[in-house]
Amino acid sequence: MRLAGKVAIVTGGAGGIGRGIALAMAKEGAHIAIVDINEENGKKTLAEINERTEGALFIQDISVKENVEMIVKETVSHFGKIDILVNNAHASRNVSFTETTMEHFDLSFGTGFYPTFHFMQACYPELKKTQGKVINFASGAGLEGQPTQTSYAAAKEAIRAISRVAANEWGPDGINVNLISPIALTPGVEQWRDNNKEAYDAMVQKIPLRRLGDPEADIGRTAVFLASDDANYITGQTIMVDGGTVKLR
C-alpha cells in the first residue's frame, strides 16, 4: 500500500491510460478523483476503483479554467487534501503539417496543455501543504517529431517545458514534477490494430521489447512509483515507458 491515504486527481481517468493509472493507484491505497468528460465510462471506472479503495469520486469535464478551480475545490471538500495530480487527458487530430489549422491547435492545446497548466496552478497551494507529486504526460510524437502530429507534438513539448519550470520553482516547496512518455495498448489502439494488422505488427517490431505497454501494469505502476516516497529525489524528468522506443540523451 505505497499510496495509502494519499489523494490523487487523475484527468482523463475514465478510460485508457488514465483508467490504468487510477486503478493502479487505488490498488496501492490512494483515494481517486476521476476527472473525465465521458460520464458513462467514468462511472464504470468509479465502480472498479470502489472495489479497491473507499471514497472514489467522479467529476465530469475539464475544458475550462473555471471548471478546473471547481474540481480542485470539490476534491478538497470531499477528501480534505490533494497529494497527487495526474494530468493525462488530451485530444488531438492527426493531419499533415501543411493541413494543420488553428482549430487543430485549439483542440490539442485546449484539451491537453491548458488544462495541465490550469490544474497545476489550481493545485499548487494544496500540493505545497502535502509536499505532493505532479505527473504530466509527454509523447514520442514531440520528442521525435512524428509525422501528422504537429498540434499534438507542440502541445506535448509545451507541457514538458512548463513541467521543467515548475520542477525548478516548486522544488524548494517539496513538490516533485515529472513526466511519463508512454506507449500503451489502449482501447483506441486495440480498435486500430483490429483494422490495421500489418501496420500494427510493423509498429510492434520497432519496439525493442516487442509489445505495447499495459495501461495499468506498465504505465500505471510507473505512475505509482513517481507518486510514492520512492521517487522523492526525482523531479523535472521525462520517464520513457515505451518499451525502449525512444532513448533520451
Rank of each mutant, 00 (worst) to 15 (best):
T116W: 09
I62M: 14
A30P: 08
T45E: 03
E69T: 11
I34Y: 01
H90D: 02
G142H: 03
V64K: 15
R52S: 08
T45Q: 00
G80T: 09
V95A: 06
M25V: 02
E74T: 13
R93M: 12
V86F: 07
A141I: 04
T101D: 02
T98I: 15
N38M: 11
K133H: 11
I82K: 04
E48F: 01
F137W: 11
H118C: 04
T130R: 00
M70E: 15
F79V: 03
I59N: 03
A138I: 00
F117M: 12
E54T: 14
V64G: 02
Q149M: 14
F119Y: 14
E74M: 07
T100V: 05
G80K: 02
I62R: 14
I49V: 14
K129L: 12
V35L: 14
E28N: 08
E39F: 00
C123H: 04
G112L: 05
Y114R: 12
K73R: 15
A33R: 07
V134N: 01
L127T: 00
F109E: 03
E66V: 08
E51C: 10
N50H: 10
F113V: 04
M102E: 15
L143I: 15
T45M: 07
T100H: 08
L57V: 06
G132L: 05
G132N: 09
G42M: 01
L107I: 15
K27I: 01
L107V: 15
T53Y: 12
S139A: 08
A47N: 12
L127E: 03
E54A: 13
M25S: 02
R93K: 14
I37S: 02
V76E: 00
V72L: 05
Q146W: 10
A91T: 14
L127D: 05
N41A: 08
N41H: 04
V76G: 02
V68G: 06
N87E: 02
V72N: 07
L107A: 13
T130G: 00
G29N: 11
N87T: 09
F137R: 01
E144H: 00
K129V: 10
E28R: 07
I71E: 06
T148F: 09
T130H: 00
I62S: 11
D83T: 07
N50K: 10
M25W: 05
E66Y: 04
H118L: 11
K43H: 14
N67H: 12
S151M: 11
R52K: 15
G140L: 13
F113I: 07
E69N: 14
K43E: 13
L143V: 12
N41P: 00
I32R: 06
L127I: 02
C123F: 00
A33C: 15
V64W: 07
I32M: 03
T130Q: 02
T111K: 05
I49L: 13
L57Q: 08
G132W: 08
I84R: 07
M102L: 15
T148S: 02
K81G: 01
I135Q: 05
E54W: 08
L127H: 03
N94E: 12
M70L: 13
A30E: 07
L107Y: 14
K81F: 08
N136T: 12
N41C: 00
A89P: 04
V134Q: 01
T100E: 06
S139C: 05
I71K: 12
M70G: 10
